[in-house]
C-alpha cells in the first residue's frame, strides 16, 4: 500500500514539475527553431528545409551587423567597464571607511534606484541629456545605463569586499607594502571574482536593455541590436521572420553563454534583485 502510494506521489510530482518546465520552455522554442527554417512562420516546427541561410542574411545586412557587433558591444561594454570599476572602488571605500550608517546608506541607495527607474526616470533624464547635448551618442547611453546600474552594482560588490578579511590588507602593510602595493597586489586580485560577477551582470543588463537606447538613440547607425531588431519588426510592413528570428537568436546568444559561464565558473549565486537597477 505504502509503496504504491509513494510511486503515485512520485509520478504526480514528476508530472507537475515537467509541466512547469514545459511552461518555461515552450515560449522560447520558436526562437530556437525558426532561425534554422528557410520558410520560417510563427509556428514552432522542425526546420524544413533546414538552413543556415538566415544567418547569412543577417551577416549581409550591414545595419544589423553594425548594431550588434559595434553599437551593442560598445554600449554594453562601456557600461560593463564603468559599472565594474566604479562599483568596486565605491564598495571598497564603503567597507573600509568606518562611516556611520553605511549599511543603511547602501540599502537606501538601491531602494532609491528602484524609485527612480523605468519610463518615469527617463523623462527628466532625457531632458538632462538633451541639455548636455548627449542625445544620440554612445556616451549618453553608457552614462545613463551606468548610473542606473551602479547602486545595485555597489550592493553586489559589497558582499565580496566584506568577505575579504582585513587581515589580508593588514598583513600586506606589516609585510612592508605601501598602500598602492597593497591595493594592486592583494585587494584587486582578491576582488577579481566579484568584479567579474558585477561586470557580467552589468553587461547582461546593458545588452538586454531596450528602453534606454530606444529613447536616447535617434540615428540608425548608432542603434544597438535590440532597437535595430524592433525596428525590423515595426517598420516596413510585414516583418521578414527569417531575418528577425535569426538576428534575435544571435543577439540572445551572448546572454545564454555568459549565464552558462557564470554558472560554471562561480556557480549561479543568487543576489536579491540581480536585475534591479537600470530597467
Amino acid at each position: 500500500m505504502r509503496s504504491a502510494r509513494f510511486v503515485l506521489v512520485r509520478l504526480g510530482f514528476m508530472l507537475v514539475t515537467s509541466l512547469l518546465g514545459t511552461f518555461f520552455l515552450l515560449p522560447v522554442l520558436w526562437l530556437v527553431t525558426a532561425p534554422f527554417n528557410a520558410q520560417a512562420t510563427l509556428r514552432v516546427e522542425w526546420p524544413s528545409p533546414f538552413t543556415l541561410q538566415n544567418f547569412g542574411e543577417v551577416f549581409r545586412n550591414t545595419f544589423a551587423i553594425r548594431a550588434l557587433f559595434l553599437n551593442s558591444i560598445l554600449q554594453a561594454g562601456g557600461t560593463m567597464l564603468g559599472t565594474a570599476v566604479i562599483a568596486t572602488l565605491a564598495a571598497y571605500a564603503l567597507s573600509r571607511l568606518e562611516i556611520k550608517g553605511r549599511n543603511l546608506f547602501v540599502y537606501l541607495l538601491v531602494l532609491f534606484s528602484s524609485v527612480v527607474t523605468g519610463t518615469a526616470a527617463m523623462v527628466p533624464i532625457f531632458l538632462l541629456l538633451y541639455y548636455l547635448r548627449l542625445i544620440d551618442t554612445h556616451l549618453g547611453v553608457i552614462l545613463v545605463l551606468t548610473g542606473g546600474l551602479l547602486p545595485t552594482g555597489i550592493f553586489l560588490m559589497r558582499d565580496f569586499v566584506e568577505s575579504m578579511p582585513r587581515s589580508y590588507e593588514e598583513s600586506a602593510l606589516v609585510s612592508g607594502a605601501t598602500a598602492w602595493q597593497m591595493f594592486r597586489d592583494v585587494v584587486l586580485p582578491v576582488l577579481r571574482p566579484g568584479m567579474m560577477v558585477v561586470a557580467v551582470w552589468a553587461f547582461v543588463n546593458a545588452w538586454g536593455n531596450f528602453l534606454i537606447p530606444a529613447i536616447l538613440i535617434r540615428s540608425p547607425e548608432k542603434m544597438p541590436a535590440p532597437v535595430a531588431i524592433y525596428s525590423f519588426y515595426t517598420e516596413g510592413g510585414t516583418p521578414v521572420l527569417t531575418l528577425v528570428s535569426a538576428y534575435s537568436l544571435l543577439y540572445a546568444l551572448p546572454v545564454v553563454i555568459l549565464y552558462l559561464f557564470v554558472n560554471w565558473r562561480y556557480g549561479f549565486r543568487f543576489f536579491g534583485g540581480i536585475k534591479g537597477g537600470g530597467k
Partner: peptide, 10 residues
Amino acid sequence: AMVFQDYALY
C-alpha cells in the same frame, strides 16, 4: 613581521 590568526595567506 606578524602572523595573523587566520594566516592571511593571499
